[in-house]
Design a binder for these strands. Sequence first.
DNA 1: GTGACTTTGTGCAGGGGTTCACAAGAACGT
DNA 2: ACGTTCTTGTGAACCCCTGCACAAAGTCAC
Lengths: 220, 220
Amino acid sequence: MSAAATTRRDIPDASVARLPGYLRALTALARNDIASVSSEELATAAGVSSTMLRKDLSHLGSYGVRGVGYDVERLASEITTALGLTQDWPVAIVGMGNLGRALAAYRGFAERGFRVIALLDGDPRVVGDRVAGDVVRPMRDLPDLVVDHGLAIGVIATPSAGAQEACDDLVEAGVRSVLNFAPAVLSVPDGVVVRTVDLSTELQILAFHGQRVAAPEVVA
Amino acid sequence: MSAAATTRRDIPDASVARLPGYLRALTALARNDIASVSSEELATAAGVSSTMLRKDLSHLGSYGVRGVGYDVERLASEITTALGLTQDWPVAIVGMGNLGRALAAYRGFAERGFRVIALLDGDPRVVGDRVAGDVVRPMRDLPDLVVDHGLAIGVIATPSAGAQEACDDLVEAGVRSVLNFAPAVLSVPDGVVVRTVDLSTELQILAFHGQRVAAPEVVA
DNA sequence: GTGACTTTGTGCAGGGGTTCACAAGAACGT
DNA sequence: ACGTTCTTGTGAACCCCTGCACAAAGTCAC
């Protein structure tokens, strides 16, 4: 049982990044009791081209029926499996500033199998506070969370100055997936995956495109 | 003065997306009174390869000195200009739920020239509330904000059900750059740029990579 | 002034991802 | 049973991006 029960491994990164979008669109269809969907319709709902959708799905296997389309439930199930969402993923949020508190109060996690099992902060003055009904815990609780509760994903919502330290604590405790909201470059050992989401970066990219339209210019 | 005073237009998207990172690293260097930096050092600080950094910068022009490196202040200034950050960018946040309130309280915007000039919500029961010292305004105020205050960027922090409507209101008022935090695909006319940041999507991508290491497998 | 050294800027090759075009396969009407 | 129609799955072309290798250009020591 080494390579049999596993999902396919050769899915391109760009494709993986789009699968959640497809899953979301499929879930919406299922809520409206729609049983079957064509690649064209699903692609429109997910905001991509139908060719790209089909190529992405082909990496998972052939789950469509030619001339008909895709079974909504079936395809949702396949994508769920491919993404590894059949199991629950325990999540811890580090850093109880404005953003951390907002994330702690956000209800959207549980919908998709992500369970926030702990809120932490490195500042002793914050530890013990109640946030969204939970008590804020100290960083030294991390190893136990990994061992006892299978903590797998850490969300960093600290100021950028403390992000690397928080990341190091997570990694040392055994967490191998990190979602970083601090505007900082985190260095981690091989095998640890970090995704950084930075508000300022996004706004600056928008500013670049904004000035392009603000100063229109013809080619010749 | 049509094509002269404008910055270069042929910067690849992938390159533009990295410029904010370079700018952040340069700002940190300037804070430490470092006047000059090599591509190798700056690349490390920004988490990219030195070759890629130099290629990215070459799209802006030749602002380095061979054998020496880059002048920190000068390069920061050039990137600032290229991104269009010499001017202030008025921002409005739509949707005063948990995330919207956290964004409103976030202090990181002003640091980089983004000024939050209004908080809005479509729900009359929320309009008039005080959030982070500002009064929440109704959506119908949008056109005036664009005309009177040059509102250019809209941040959508509504539930996904209301995201498209909020987006339509923004676009109709004249906003052409949108940062969307709702898990939804927004359709907009040509000339409007939307960037979507979705927590669930990010977590699901991490889950995919997490299961890869959870079920290790050798090639042969 | 000259040679050794350092670092930038870039032509070129390689790879990954997207799009195109079309073959393969399934349902349906007659 | 057969042709028409529809839709998926995929080989191939194309394009953008990244990494390599190296020439160009500057500094420094003497």
